[in-house]
Amino acid sequence: MSQKLKQFSKNQIFWPLMVLLAILLANGVISGGQFFEMRIVDGHLYGRLIDILRNGSKLMVLAIGITMALATGGTDISVGSVMAISGAVACSIVDGRLLSGVSGSVTVAIVLALLAGLACGLWNGVLIAKAKIQPIVATMILMVAGRGIAQLITEGKIVTINSDAYYFINGGYILGLPFPLFIVAFAFVVVMLFTRKTASGLFIEAIGVNSVSSRFTGIKVDRIKLMIYAFSGLMAAVAGLIESAGIKGADCNNAGLLIELDAILSVAIGGTSLFGGRFSIPASVVGALIIQSISTSVLAIGVAPEVTLVVKSLIVIVICLVQSKKFKEMLAGKFSRRAVKEA
């Protein structure tokens, strides 16, 4: 048993999980237990924890999508803009201003929004894998241009929609649990199967560590990169659907604004190095939950909005320190040297 525990403590997900538990516990203590309370109303589960899960679902989806890009040593900072595009496409169709022929079909709206995200991701992938543009620059193009494209789609307006079917994406419940959680679970399972049951996980890590050597061993580096960025675009589109269903419309200027930073941070907090190499999707999901619970709890404690960002960044600094290998070694060194002296 203790052997297993020791093994687990070396797992990438161990520290992020501890941090998450600590944050949740702290919340519980500060709120005097209220934080953990759950109510069932009309067969639906309500409570702070559920809020964190539901509100964090966008971020979890994004983190799942972006982890592999980061694992190859790249990045994708266009996800926020892609969310805006996806929301714009979907809402404009539901609203009827786009493709009025389908008379606001929610299914068509969702499919086309996802395809738009996939296309954005492929575009990024081509720039990075074929044109060999640095990932941060390549995805910056769409980050900047994406909101403009979204504006074009909505003709520069904020589109509000009225469709219960569409609202369901964010607000619906199945088996008492919020629907977005099922989306997260689905994406998670698909990616886990893909990276664990095929050799793609190994190849992605190899590319992240040394892409030249990887090519020399016959790994199709370019094709894998293309696939990874396409997937990241697709996940951004999913997040865009959840967001627009939540605000019941498309706001191109604010949808997913700066969320790419939170997404990258989630992965980093999960312990995947931004230089590439070893990665863990579950750890990234936990990272996203950490960020979400910090945001939620800072608000709940009643910290003034001006201060929330500072508090959030302080907590992030602490987490990054805990994650840092150097820092751990330093601590370990201090302890072991003390131990040697005492001996």
């Binding site: 095929t198 793609s200 190994l202 190899a206 560590v209 040394n210 050597s213 061993t217 190499g277 070893r278």
Partner: peptide, 24 residues
Amino acid sequence: SEGIVGDLSVRENIMLALQAKQGM
């Protein structure tokens, strides 16, 4: 620079080319 994939294990380094040849 063209051979080892440093952070991966000995096992992963040895299997890499064969795995790539077999397909992802």
